[in-house]
Structure formats: structure tokens, C-alpha cells
Amino acid sequence: MLTIDVSFVTSEDELHGLLKREFDFPYFYGRNWDAFWDAVTGLVRIPDQVRFVGWVSLLEHVPSGGESLRRQLDGYRDQYRPDLLVEYV
């Protein structure tokens, strides 16, 4: 299981930087939601289990980023990885 602490994130740019590091996205990752989709669907393999801790804090500081991340991962799971387990705690 990959655990990602998002409790300290205060901007969407910080969120993308954290996702780039934790998911080992390539150096050319564009730090936007289209680039995130491209990365998870064709450039890297997301672990079977991912846990985001500090989720409430993320939603307080970066609500659109948190919702976009959840939407992206839900879509990824629905289309490509029905076995993917993502927790938001």
C-alpha cells in the first residue's frame, strides 16, 4: 500500500508536485489534471492500494484539487483498474 500524506498541501501546484513524487511521474509531468490522467493511464503503474491521509485538510485548503483527484482516480479505477483500492482518510 502506498500512503500519501496530503495534510500539508495548500495549493493545487503543491498537490501535483506531491503526486509527481509519490507516483514517480516522469520529469516532464505537466502538473495539471490532463497530465495526471495521461500519466496514470499510460506512463506509470499506480499501486493496487493507495491511502491519502489528511484528506479533510486537503479539502479545506484545496477543495477543487481534492475533488479533481478523487474524480480522476475514480475514473481510472472504473475504466482500467476495478481492483484499485483508494482510501481517503
Results as ranks from 00 to 15, higher is better:
residue 83 D to E: 15
residue 32 N to C: 14
residue 37 W to V: 15
residue 53 V to S: 00
residue 5 D to C: 02
residue 37 W to Q: 13
residue 36 F to A: 12
residue 4 I to S: 01
residue 11 S to C: 01
residue 70 R to F: 10
residue 40 V to L: 01
residue 24 D to R: 15
residue 27 Y to I: 15
residue 3 T to Q: 04
residue 8 F to K: 13
residue 76 Y to P: 02
residue 70 R to G: 07
residue 13 D to W: 02
residue 1 M to D: 10
residue 78 D to G: 07
residue 72 Q to E: 14
residue 63 P to L: 05
residue 65 G to N: 11
residue 15 L to T: 13
residue 57 S to C: 07
residue 43 L to H: 12
residue 85 L to M: 07
residue 65 G to H: 09
residue 50 V to R: 03
residue 75 G to I: 01
residue 36 F to Y: 13
residue 84 L to S: 05
residue 17 G to N: 14
residue 43 L to R: 14
residue 11 S to V: 00
residue 68 S to F: 05
residue 35 A to P: 00
residue 65 G to V: 09
residue 39 A to Y: 04
residue 23 F to C: 12
residue 60 E to D: 13
residue 16 H to L: 08
residue 59 L to P: 12
residue 66 G to N: 02
residue 33 W to I: 03
residue 54 G to I: 03
residue 34 D to N: 10
residue 80 Y to P: 00
residue 86 V to Y: 03
residue 84 L to C: 09
residue 14 E to W: 05
residue 44 V to I: 12
residue 22 E to P: 02
residue 27 Y to D: 15
residue 43 L to M: 13
residue 74 D to G: 01
residue 49 Q to C: 12
residue 55 W to Y: 10
residue 85 L to P: 00
residue 34 D to Q: 11
residue 28 F to I: 08
residue 58 L to K: 02
residue 71 R to P: 00
residue 10 T to S: 10
residue 63 P to H: 10
residue 60 E to T: 09
residue 7 S to I: 05
residue 25 F to I: 04
residue 47 P to H: 09
residue 49 Q to W: 12
residue 87 E to V: 01
residue 49 Q to P: 03
residue 19 L to A: 00
residue 13 D to Q: 10
residue 59 L to S: 01
residue 17 G to V: 06
residue 62 V to A: 06
residue 44 V to F: 06
residue 30 G to M: 04
residue 72 Q to P: 00
residue 79 Q to Y: 02
